[in-house]
Design a protein around this nucleic acid. Structure first.
Lengths: 191, 191
DNA sequence: TCGCACATGTAACGTGTTACATGATTCA
DNA sequence: TGAATCATGTAACACGTTACATGTGCGA
């Protein structure tokens, strides 16, 4: 499998959303506005150019579709676009990814259902996520230790904010594994 | 007090770091590289232009300082720069701020020690943070309820990721209040 | 008929990224 | 002598933001 190309989070999200069902720029804009994805732009000035880029690069194909009477340009992924989407979704979570953009892993997880009917990939995703989180937690704790609190406690507490965030992510992984029944059985080696 | 101007996170961070002590572009670049702030750029292509902008806008002043034999351009905030820094640091945490950029509140907290000797502002900060988090948690939980899990559990779980993140932030606020001894006394109304 | 939601875009602007450029000093 | 580090920058590029532009169809 080819490694995922260097697309933006927004572009990957557009790939995933048009894979769920063919959608127009307006549909996507509405989606971003109404659902819990406001953070991802929603402005036409980002969505339409992104769609054009994906079209130019051969990841999306568009069809004019008469809806009522208006013309809507509806996009869907090409074979190449689907390959790219899968490569993006199936990549293991790394510390690097988390540090580049913390929202990236959850976003990928949210779309995993689109291509992962039997949840094999979902289980692998959660395992790799967990494996990236554990050493990160240790690293942050070690950094926090290095601060002397006497003069100014703020920097150390700021690091501990990161610690609590990572702990929240670990709790979520465990919760997701429980919810999906993909938790590794007790006594079974996870490596 | 004037409301904080529309500076970027990086610019505000530069203001705070030069307020701690006069620093050159190179010092700042090193700081970002070595400490737990890699996320904030560190590339000369962002730092030097940002310093120039702050200089142009009158928030920073620079002095040539002979260090050993080399010339270093060292920056420090002007009176106007200090005003801006304080306005930024003292603003209450809002849902809006969190949704714009989740890293913003912690970053502000990390620098609060620079101007808040008696920790009055720190206490106010933590209170406002907490007050923004509680309704956010409720909102996310409500959104999560709306998903039917049968077809695809991923979207709902993705929202629950946000829930765990917010819970982690709440835990951190409580932890910070305990650590600083600024916790509101039991029985005392917090409103 | 007035205004709103539908529907698609472009233009200007600012900012960050990567890569390149330059030159001095220190140390092995 | 050669490499690494100190030190400061610029240039090309891509992306997102805000604001603007344009036109249709529907319901009050």
């Amino acid at each position: 499998m080819n490694p995922p190309e260097d697309l933006t989070l927004l572009e990957h999200a557009l790939l995933a959303l048009t894979a769920q069902q063919p959608r127009s720029g307006y549909d996507l804009k509405k989606l971003f506005e109404t659902t819990a994805m406001q953070q991802f732009s929603s402005s036409p000035g980002s969505i339409y150019p992104a769609l054009q880029r994906l079209d130019r690069r051969g990841f999306l194909a568009s069809v004019e579709r008469a809806n009522g009477d208006r013309t809507r340009r509806v996009y869907r992924p090409t074979a190449s676009g689907m390959r790219e989407l899968k490569a993006w979704l199936l990549a293991p979570v790394t510390l690097d990814e988390m540090q580049r953009d913390g929202r990236s892993p959850v976003l990928r997880f949210a779309f995993l259902g689109v291509i992962d009917a039997d949840r094999t990939a979902t289980q692998a995703f959660l395992t790799s996520y967990r494996r990236a989180l554990d050493p990160y937690l240790e690293e942050l704790r070690a950094v926090a230790e290095e601060f002397d609190d006497e003069s100014d406690p703020h920097p150390r507490l700021a690091i501990l904010h990161g610690v609590e965030q990572v702990k929240g992510q670990i709790r979520w992984v465990e919760r997701a594994e429980r919810a999906l029944g993909t938790a590794p059985k007790t006594g079974e080696k996870t490596r």
